[in-house]
Amino acid sequence: CHSECLGNCSQPDDPTKCVACRNFYLDGRCVETCPPPYYHFQDWRCVNFSFCQDLHHKCKNSRRQGCHQYVIHNNKCIPECPSGYTMNSSNLLCTPCLGPCPKVCHLLEGEKTIDSVTSAQELRGCTVINGSLIINIRGGNNLAAELEANLGLIEEISGYLKIRRSYALVSLSFFRKLRLIRGETLEIGNYSFYALDNQNLRQLWDWSKHNLTITQGKLFFHYNPKLCLSEIHKMEEVSGTKGRQERNDIALKTNGDQASCENELLKFSYIRTSFDKILLRWEPYWPPDFRDLLGFMLFYKEAPYQNVTEFDGQDACGSNSWTVVDIDPPLRSNDPKSQNHPGWLMRGLKPWTQYAIFVKTLVTFSDERRTYGAKSDIIYVQTDATNPSVPLDPISVSNSSSQIILKWKPPSDPNGNITHYLVFWERQAEDSELFELDYCLKGLKLPSRTWSPPFESEDSQKHNQSEYEDSAGECCSCPKTDSQILKELEESSFRKTFEDYLHNVVFVPRKT
């Protein structure tokens, strides 16, 4: 048989008469490798580009789960590009990614509803959504962080984005990388972005840091009482949809009607710091009717980097990364020049730590249904340095008659930039024990000054392991946590139920 035959053949030295091919099969003959313009397919066939392209389009058009959109890589027609490569849609070739590779997620039936953290986790790592997304989240724990972890990498949506009755959302900033909504599939009414009845939605994105392009379709905003109209108009300008909307697409009466839409800028007039305090004062603000001013709200939190936005980490279910302080308005003076500047002394802060701070007014709604208010920009203030805590785990070892090696770990709280350490030492008198000992005694162990690591005695271990207080009263049991108490109650309830079950099964009433 021919060298490319495997198993047997019907005619000697003829690659077209093989029972099976050793390498690849091409047009009725066995070959060692697939010549151009053919590609290896499933490690035994040679196919042309049209064959591989037909497989790709067949799966793409069917949208069946589990099928493969075949691509070409290293002269092979394979189910998908290997790690580190992405497909070129024009020629199906796998090309190296520039940075992290995109991950295209194809949605069944063309859309997916995100109504819980669990459903959001199914899209973790996706960068391109081939379909439409509907966000409908009523509640949950730590929602802002969970949504950002699972949806934060999405850069492109081919269909539309719909935010509907998501009472738990305060902001859409968890879509931190969303840059493009194509609108290839539109919501009824030709809408590519749809926001309806979101009672706590206050911000779409921080438009000073976020760009969003909507290729096709219109915007729809109705019944978002805490979303200011200025935020919607800003989205029109940034996304390129200005002029597409009709009169009733953006409701003037049901958007922002319960919001404090600040239209003035508060400026800080005085800032002073110490290692654990920050004193702030800002310019006074009074609405047209000074009785509408209820006070100020001061927001602050630790910020290692200057990239904080107002609604980071917030949701309507209680999660809030900001510390909020309510401040009463100052006494009002008739003389504008003698107006008191409101302020606040922030206490209990960490030394040498940068804080993000902003302040906003708290006002009631005027009778004319106009909203007044003022808010400052987010500023960054760093507390002063102070003395560091003591170095940890000092170790001293003498390696000769004239040297001592000293080692330690950095302090747990540096409280500033540590530039150097101060080492103090003092000579001590020799131990009298060394002169009084009889060095001729056998088995004498000389006193040693070398360091030995501390260890816990058996008594201390027994005390720590004991669940009861000892007789001397030195140790006591740790208080039980809520989960331990709940577990004990469940076990007790189970024992009672099981005992009742045994009584009912074992003891049967005697027939009379």
Rank of each mutant, 00 (worst) to 15 (best):
E146Y: 13
H106V: 14
S269I: 08
S389N: 13
Y372D: 03
G217E: 01
K350F: 12
M297W: 12
P287R: 03
C228F: 02
I157A: 00
I163F: 14
I188R: 12
N141G: 11
G152Q: 15
L279Q: 04
N200K: 12
A303M: 09
T113Y: 12
K112P: 04
R138A: 15
V238A: 08
R347C: 09
K407P: 00
T254N: 09
I181M: 05
R165A: 04
T241H: 11
Q339C: 07
R124L: 11
T361I: 12
S269M: 08
E368S: 11
L204T: 14
A374V: 04
G313A: 07
M297N: 15
L169I: 06
H222S: 11
K337S: 08
D393W: 09
G189P: 06
C126G: 00
K301S: 09
S333Y: 08
E156V: 00
I278A: 03
A259P: 10
N334T: 11
S338L: 08
E187C: 05
N211Q: 14
E156F: 11
W207T: 06
P391D: 00
D335L: 09
R332Y: 10
N141K: 12
V308G: 15
Q121E: 02
I250H: 01
K162T: 01
S400A: 15
W282A: 14
E122I: 05
T309L: 03
T215S: 10
S269Q: 15
I232S: 03
N200W: 14
S269V: 06
G139Y: 11
A356V: 08
R202K: 06
K267C: 07
D115H: 09
E262V: 06
S319M: 06
I271L: 08
L153P: 11
K177P: 02
A374G: 09
R164P: 06
T371F: 04
L280Q: 01
Y167S: 03
L123R: 00
G313I: 08
L349H: 00
R244C: 10
W322S: 01
P342R: 08
L180S: 08
P330W: 10
A120D: 01
P304R: 12
D289V: 01
V359P: 04
N340T: 14
P351K: 05
C317T: 01
I163Q: 01
Q245M: 15
S239E: 03
T113E: 12
R244F: 15
E146D: 04
G256A: 03
W207Y: 12
Y167N: 13
N340D: 13
K177A: 11
N142C: 01
C126A: 02
N200Q: 14
S269H: 14
G159M: 01
I250N: 14
E246Y: 07
N307D: 15
L201Q: 03
I278P: 00
D292S: 11
